[in-house]
Design a protein around this nucleic acid. Structure first.
Length: 426
RNA sequence: GGGAAGGUGGCUGAGUGGACGAAAGCAACGGUUUGCUAAACCGUCGAAGGGUCACACCUUCCGAGGGUUCGAAUCCCUCCCUUCCCGCCA
């Protein structure tokens, strides 16, 4: 959510930002109009309430019965007016609030303006793509042959976009999770969290998933619980409604969770393999920081995610997303790993700086110094990394001519020293 | 799920219809004193919104939402949460 003062003081800045992300700049005027109406209503209601408060105190002091009754009668009238106007004021307030919750964040000036993902900018490519001297198989073929991916049975029990992982496939995923989290904790200074996978609507509103993106997340019927689409939701909301000490910042958290996404893409797109699923595992990094440091924190976040790619020794590239792809961030970079079997770059991380957009919604503040007014923190998050896609990249980059897959060296200590996945030993 | 007791400011904790945004203590912050540390003393010390150049000032908030009343932290209703006991279960 944006600061209403920005609309009052610099409406053109907001209009320009909305235009860049493809939203109607006229929304600014809707906000301003409601803001004026809201303040008029509040002023009037408050005037009446002040009158009633004074009048009620006067009643308490009045001893004469007749005089007292007259004053009570007069205040009753004021009370009736208040209840009437209160209803109006609340309606305006609600309308404004709903509108504000629906509005996007503003992109930073440097973000390239674009219409869709084709306008994202490749910042750099790291690692060389090796040409194999055999036909590289896509992971779904390789995984089924090795007996570590089972699509048929996953679909039978849960439907399309679900799968089952077996044997060394699961072991590989577990190894990745442990290795990545250990790296972020031991080398990058994050604190590990285990969080709920179901959260209340308020938490979803806090991170911006509700109300706007309700059709992309799963809701548990007859409850106020929603399945998290990413650990970003419970982790960012960890400190909702809190005023933090400056000394606590920056807070850096890492958590592994499953992620549930009600993908609304066209039928038939990305249906093969484990690229796009209704449920997948991810290691996520989240930071709550002082505004002045947030931009630097974004680049250290990206670098933390890159260290995972580097450790696995898989080619990857860094993309700066254009205004069409920002989601609710002010600026965002993606990491994409090369998948030679699918012959495409796979998004394995999305690192965004959200400014105070989320903290304002979730009401997460800090006190810049003792006695000072609380201010909103800045929030950031980035995958570190998304598992099924990293597994795709490992299977496809580390496959051998005989159909086996070599385990990346960094993961071997987490897999009991196993060096490769073969058909007979999967 | 059943029973009991509770939810008040950063924390502890008074307050059962009228000057209560809320006693007191702790913590924090500023100052005085002191050779240093500590202690003592004095003062400040919740949030949101409106308003103001800035103050002043006004409104709201005592788990949440309704209700009663001229007036609610205080009375009534519903819900949520916490703790303990019982049941159930990993």
């Amino acid at each position: 959510m944006l600061d209403i003062r920005l609309f009052r003081e610099q409406p053109d800045v907001v209009r320009e930002g909305f235009a860049k992300v493809g939203r109607d700049p006229g929304l600014v005027d809707q906000v301003l109009d409601l803001d004026v109406k809201r303040r008029e209503a509040i002023t009037e209601v408050e005037r009446l309430k002040a009158e009633r408060n004074a009048g009620s105190k006067d009643v308490a002091r009045t001893k004469d019965k007749a005089e007292r009754d007259a004053k009570i009668a007069a205040m009753k009238l004021v009370g009736d007016q208040i209840s009437e106007l209160d209803v109006q004021a609340n309606a305006i307030d609600l309308e404004l609030n709903n509108l504000m919750l629906d509005l996007p964040n503003l992109p930073l000036p440097e973000v390239p303006v674009g219409k869709d993902e084709h306008d994202n900018v490749v910042v750099r490519v790291e690692g060389a793509i090796k040409e194999a001297d055999f036909a590289v198989k896509p992971h779904w073929e390789l995984g089924e042959e090795l007996g570590i991916l089972d699509f048929e049975r996953g679909v039978r029990m849960s439907g399309t976009r679900f799968f089952v992982m077996k044997g060394l496939g699961v072991r590989l995923q577990r190894a990745l999770i442990s290795w990545m989290i250990d790296m972020h904790v031991d080398q990058h200074g994050y604190t590990e969290l285990a969080v709920p996978y179901l959260v209340k609507a308020d938490a979803m509103v806090g991170t911006g998933n509700l109300p706007k993106f309700a059709d992309t997340i799963f809701h548990i019927e007859d409850t106020d619980l929603w399945l998290i689409p990413t650990a970003e939701v419970p982790v960012t909301n960890l400190h909702r409604e809190e005023i933090l000490d400056k000394a606590q910042l920056p807070l850096r958290y890492v958590a592994h969770t499953p992620c549930f996404r009600n993908e609304q893409m066209s039928a038939g797109r990305d249906v093969r393999g484990i690229k796009r699923l209704y449920q997948f595992d991810k290691v996520e990094m989240v930071k709550l920081v002082e505004p002045a440091t947030s931009y630097d924190e974004l680049f250290s976040l990206i670098s933390n995610a890159e260290d995972v790619c580097k450790g696995l020794n898989i080619p990857y590239r860094l993309l700066q997303l254009c205004t069409a792809d920002l989601g609710t961030a002010t600026v965002k970079y993606d990491l994409e790993m090369w998948a030679p079997g699918m012959n495409e770059w796979l998004e394995v991380s999305s690192c965004g700086l959200f400014g105070d957009y989320q903290s304002r919604r979730a009401n997460i503040r800090y006190r810049p110094e003792a006695g000072a007014k609380p201010e909103f923190v800045h929030t950031l998050n980035g995958s570190g990394l998304a598992l099924p896609r990293v597994i795709i990249s490992i299977l496809e980059n580390y496959q051998n001519a005989d159909g086996s897959v070599t385990i990346p060296e960094v993961l071997r200590p987490y897999m009991g020293g196993i060096e490769r996945i073969t058909k007979s030993k999967a």
